[in-house]
Simulated scan of single mutants.
Amino acid sequence: MTERRAELAGNLARVEERIAAACAAAGRRREDVTLIVVTKTYPASDVRLLHELGVRQVAENRDQDAAPKAAACADLDLTWHFVGQLQTNKVRSVAGYAQFVQSVDRLKLVGALSTAAVRAGRELGLLLQVALDAEAAGRGERGGVGPDGVAELADAVAAAPGLRLGGLMTVAPLAGPYAGRQRAAFDRLVEISARLRLDHPAATMVSAGMSADLEDAVAAGATHVRIGTAVLGVRPRLG
């Protein structure tokens, strides 16, 4: 455990250096970018070590992994983000531990999350996942709503009990006009965010960038970066 703690501490320090350097290059304050560590496939023991090292924001993408991990770490002051594609049959479970769901991409999901949040007596922060490979209102290959569908979905979240519209999220697309152009993709997301805030000024979160492209995300104006591999190491293959 001491060895793993040292490994995580070193990795976190290197990621912190990268974020700080990216902020400096973009003329931004370091405190304006929040690090979310994506702990998927890694055990609750790693989450506890990360907490010891100062991490307070963690993310998961599969409820079957996240729910027991969140329960095992319930004594820690952590903010849990759900970042994976979410099926409506998992919504009640996710609403029990997540403070934010970053992968909202359809009206049916908004309704289910609202019902679950009210039932749990909690307020959930929602981010709309924008699919930049779906420039129309359809869904993208990796989930997400096309840019033209953002306004309708945002209005639905804002009107739903138990929910708070936090902002937008994207994953750099593998296909379409932004494939291989992460900076351009993140710039586009920030443009969409600016338009969204005209009607929903509190929706200030822009979640973009992962281990390979966090610098592009910070340069574009992301407020949150989701880092997994660079902190925890290469993920074990799932059977």
Rank of each mutant, 00 (worst) to 15 (best):
228 G>T: 00
36 I>S: 09
234 V>P: 06
209 G>K: 05
143 G>E: 02
152 E>S: 12
200 H>C: 13
5 R>M: 11
40 K>M: 07
23 C>K: 08
137 A>T: 10
193 S>K: 05
125 G>K: 06
34 T>C: 09
237 R>T: 12
154 A>G: 12
109 L>I: 02
194 A>H: 12
155 D>H: 15
162 G>S: 03
135 E>Q: 14
173 P>T: 03
65 D>K: 06
134 A>S: 15
231 V>M: 10
39 T>V: 11
75 D>V: 13
10 G>A: 07
75 D>G: 15
121 G>V: 05
39 T>Y: 04
36 I>M: 14
108 K>C: 04
140 G>V: 02
18 R>D: 12
12 L>K: 01
163 L>T: 08
168 L>V: 04
15 V>T: 03
227 I>E: 01
187 D>I: 00
17 E>P: 10
72 A>E: 13
69 K>F: 07
44 A>C: 09
138 G>M: 04
16 E>T: 14
199 D>I: 06
214 L>F: 05
27 G>I: 03
223 T>D: 02
9 A>Q: 15
155 D>N: 13
193 S>T: 02
236 P>K: 02
130 V>C: 06
76 L>Y: 07
92 R>G: 08
97 Y>I: 03
43 P>N: 10
137 A>N: 14
125 G>Q: 09
186 F>Q: 08
182 Q>D: 11
150 V>P: 04
231 V>H: 03
170 T>S: 12
119 R>M: 12
120 A>E: 13
123 E>W: 01
224 H>K: 01
221 G>I: 02
198 L>R: 11
222 A>E: 14
184 A>C: 05
220 A>E: 10
167 G>V: 05
128 L>M: 07
84 G>C: 12
59 A>I: 03
110 V>E: 00
25 A>K: 08
218 V>I: 13
148 D>P: 01
137 A>W: 09
199 D>F: 06
36 I>E: 12
187 D>T: 10
48 R>Q: 14
170 T>P: 09
134 A>Q: 08
192 I>Q: 15
66 A>G: 09
3 E>S: 11
127 L>E: 00
2 T>M: 11
230 A>P: 03
151 A>I: 08
22 A>E: 12
177 P>K: 05
38 V>Q: 04
30 R>E: 14
8 L>S: 08
102 Q>C: 03
230 A>E: 05
103 S>K: 01
74 A>H: 07
186 F>W: 02
127 L>D: 03
3 E>Y: 07
211 S>P: 01
78 L>H: 06
15 V>H: 01
72 A>K: 07
91 V>D: 09
195 R>S: 14
159 A>D: 13
173 P>W: 00
52 E>M: 01
48 R>A: 15
90 K>H: 12
127 L>H: 04
169 M>Y: 12
120 A>R: 03
70 A>F: 07
129 Q>C: 00
239 G>R: 10
221 G>N: 06
20 A>L: 08
214 L>K: 01
170 T>C: 15
123 E>R: 12
145 V>D: 14
224 H>S: 00
